[in-house]
Write a protein that binds this DNA or RNA. Structure first.
Length: 509
RNA sequence: GCUGCAGUAGCUUAAAGGUAGAGUCGGAGUUUUUCAAACUCUUGGGUGUGGGUUCGAUUCCCAUCUGCAGUACCA
């Protein structure tokens, strides 16, 4: 076995934002490259000029950067195998197409789109639903195999539009070993004479991808399962050129969470989760939401994505990008489609939030809240809140009482936990707080328990009222911590105000 | 239709012929502190179906069903 340098590529087409399935393909390419000390190449496949979408290429670069899977070579990055945008490589393809014609592996075809459409329609009427341009039908079409040579030449000379088609051999088994799927065998009778070079002067994907992969010295082609059916054509193309084919690995599809089918861009916002790494607004102004803007950490997103179609074979589920690199192998990629699970994605995000140091969370929190707060104060808030939050944005939402005094009180708790005697109990408790010094959570807690003993009450009967006064809510982290953090003065102020307000509420009801 | 690929708990999946295991979700309990938190425990599958090979099959073979993908001068 020749030990070629590992070079892989991710080759999206700029027809829109990068779907999370595409991100996963990029991720696996990246992981495989890094694992094997190889090179990860980004190539933009824009041979279809009609489907070009403005901003898509920038989106792809930006999204990959957010995910932390940065290419070693690519547009805007450079490298020795450029250019990395196929439209900029346009001039190099015709020679390759003509080489195939010379070698008898391809031919010129002059049939127009209308001709082909008619053919297909007629065939359908004759109950042959799947007409193909192939070794049988090509003999009755207008091409360089059926037309006299001088007519072919004159048509080309007169710049009549033509395409170049692959001359698919008849009844031949094409075999190749896919790293994920094992041996795949397809008979050429089931394959058609694919267009390699279009009449607009651009190659199709099939030609461009073989030429580019070869000239870019790509060692492994890792791509989605939707390419599996055309892989035999690609294998034959390598054979036709006399090039060594790269190794193939076709990744399982990403399935939508409900029902069956491929995860599509519309599933996300319909079912309440993003399908794209970052926000994307169409030219028509339609917004597709992204993981970044929803508050997911890139590491959590990547970790989740890595497990959609791969597993390490152990029970470990939390992996940093570096750990993924170390653990990843294509052999452990599964064959069956992976159903995307939005709940599990949230779970990953939660795990990453918890694992993030409080100081770092405080820094991010300071950017999303109004007003200036002491960084240490925010760090303590994060420490208290992160156990019960999924996103950073949950912290100021569920813990707004760290920043503002409560304006309303949880109705159910007022109703259930605020008895007639509670007003007095809270008033006395407030007086006790006034006397505490220093005002730490430990001292508050000890004092609270003493007080309970004195009045002969259980914690469940008194604590909810205390929480209500300081936070307005029915639940949250330790009351002693909260009280200590917002401070004696603020605690007492909130209690005095709250007792009055709740008394008023009680009268009204 | 044709070709290809795949089918293990609701979901993600492990077990490369040898007692079908995890995580998530769901449920329950504990914490004389409330709580959607924490901790503990836990329901749930006989591997799409039917045959076959084998002492033994989720793993191999055949058939069948279902799903998905491809079937464009799209990638």
């Amino acid at each position: 076995m020749s030990e070629k340098a590992v070079r892989v590529r991710f080759a999206p087409s700029p027809t829109g934002p990068l779907h999370m399935g595409g991100v996963r393909t990029a991720l696996y390419n990246y992981l495989f490259a890094k694992k094997n000390n190889g090179t990860f190449v980004l190539r933009i496949e824009d041979t279809d000029q009609t489907r070009f979408v403005k901003g898509a290429q920038e989106y792809i670069l930006d999204a990959l950067a957010w995910c932390g899977i940065t290419p070693d070579e690519g547009p805007g990055i450079g490298g020795e195998h450029g250019p990395y945008i196929q439209s900029e490589r346009k001039d190099m393809y015709p020679a390759y197409a003509e080489e195939l014609i010379k070698k008898g592996w391809a031919y010129y075809a002059f049939d127009t789109s209308e001709d082909l459409e008619n053919m297909r329609e007629q065939a359908k009427k004759m109950k042959m639903p799947n007409w193909q341009y192939n070794s049988i039908t090509r003999s009755s079409m207008k091409n360089s195999l059926t037309l006299p040579e001088d007519e072919v030449n004159s048509r080309i000379k007169n710049s009549e539009p033509y395409v170049i088609r692959f001359k698919m051999p008849r009844n031949q088994d094409v075999r190749f070993e896919d790293i994920v799927r094992g041996w795949v065998v397809v008979n050429t009778n089931n394959l058609d004479d694919k267009v390699l070079y279009k009449s607009d002067g651009m190659p199709t994907y099939h030609l461009a991808n073989i030429v580019d992969d070869h000239t870019m010295a790509i060692s492994h082609v890792i791509r989605g399962e939707e390419w599996l059916p055309s892989a035999p054509l690609h294998v034959l193309l390598y054979e036709a050129f006399g090039w060594e084919a790269p190794k193939f690995a076709h990744l399982p599809l990403l399935l939508r969470p409900d029902g069956n089918g491929k995860l599509s861009k519309r599933d996300g916002d319909r079912l309440g989760f993003p399908v794209f790494p970052t926000n994307w607004t169409t030219a028509e102004g339609e917004l597709y939401s992204g993981y970044r803007e929803k508050g997911y950490f890139p590491a959590a997103f990547i970790n989740m994505l890595a497990f959609l179609g791969w597993n390490p074979g152990t029970t470990q589920e939390l992996f940093s990008l570096e750990e993924l690199v170390a653990a990843f192998t294509l052999e452990r990629v599964s064959k069956s489609g992976a159903k995307f699970d939005a709940e599990k994605t949230k779970w990953y995000q939660q795990q990453y939030l918890r694992a993030t140091p409080n100081e770092k969370l405080a820094e991010q929190l300071s950017q999303i809240i109004d007003g200036e707060y002491d960084r240490n104060y925010l760090a303590v808030v994060c420490n208290l809140m992160k156990e019960r939050a999924t996103f950073i944005t949950d912290i100021p939402l569920d813990g707004d009482y760290f920043f503002n005094e409560p304006t309303e009180y949880d109705e159910k708790t007022v109703h259930k936990k605020w008895k007639e005697e509670t007003t007095e109990i809270m008033q006395n408790w407030c007086n006790r707080l006034t006397a505490l010094d220093p005002f730490t959570s430990e001292i508050i807690e000890v004092s609270f328990k003493q007080y309970l003993e004195e009045i002969n009450k259980g914690i469940g009967a008194v604590l909810p009222a205390f929480r209500l006064l300081l936070t307005g809510k029915a639940m949250g982290p330790s009351m002693f911590e909260i009280s200590a953090l917002i401070g004696k003065e603020e605690s007492i102020k909130r209690m005095e105000q709250g007792i009055k307000k709740i008394a008023k509420l009680k009268i009204q009801s």
